[in-house]
Design a protein around this nucleic acid. Sequence first.
DNA 1: GTTACTGCAAACAGTTTGCATTACC
DNA 2: GGTAATGCAAACTGTTTGCAGTAAC
Lengths: 139, 139
Amino acid sequence: MKDIEAIVQRFRDSGLKITPQRLSIFNLLKDNYDHPSAEDIYNKALEIHPTISFTTVYKTLQTLRDLGEILEINIDPERAHYDSVTDDHYHTFCTRCREIEDLMSGLYPVQELPDNNVVGGFDVQSVQVHLVGVCGSCN
Amino acid sequence: MKDIEAIVQRFRDSGLKITPQRLSIFNLLKDNYDHPSAEDIYNKALEIHPTISFTTVYKTLQTLRDLGEILEINIDPERAHYDSVTDDHYHTFCTRCREIEDLMSGLYPVQELPDNNVVGGFDVQSVQVHLVGVCGSCN
DNA sequence: GTTACTGCAAACAGTTTGCATTACC
DNA sequence: GGTAATGCAAACTGTTTGCAGTAAC
């Protein structure tokens, strides 16, 4: 995810409006290295905008995802999580505490894709590597 | 997933009963190299048992998953899919047709885990590698 | 002033459960 | 006969939508 000014510019360029609610969400995501669910973000946003609705948070997350500014992570079957770091990296998912964490690169190196991003006829848009198990804190 | 007799034995050994409905589900899974959702399996089962309920299919899938005989794949945010092949292998997920397919081993080789299955303090129970994109047929 | 956003309330879809009846062993 | 499975109906949870009022530009 770009820095706030760049995001604001990108929204304006796309004919999207900048509201205080949206700005708060941008800031929450920017400072966040967890992998929050929509509801996590909503709860934090409530502290700043006590009247903000879940719908607004949800729709803003969708917009950011569609613009490619954040990633939606689908590893927790119970809910989607979001990641403001869009560079290639992988995740661990703890089935006890449901926390998603970044996997230090180097700890689990994965094959490079070919230059055209095609593997066996399949056009790869993203590679998701999830190590599912139990994290250090839950052990 | 083991062959049918072994599954039947495993169920009996665990105090679980063998019903015609369950046997049909075992057979559907055994012959299946797709990655069906619970509803897919339910629809096929209906052709054999016109009165079978979704609940029965659902609960049997849970039991099989808990026994480790099938895997639940969480890559499609809209629904869980199941895989009767429990050996290590990876998947492609087409965002257009929502088909999950096996990734030929060799096309995208992945790092081996250390012997103790621990990566950076995280105790790995399974590794899920998903190539998300557009499949050959949808291109 | 025009266009898009907010927030409410309700719809939606997949998943999960409680419970009476039925079937397995 | 005792125990577990089936199947119905309803609850549940996260996600998504329609729409009237409001705010950005």
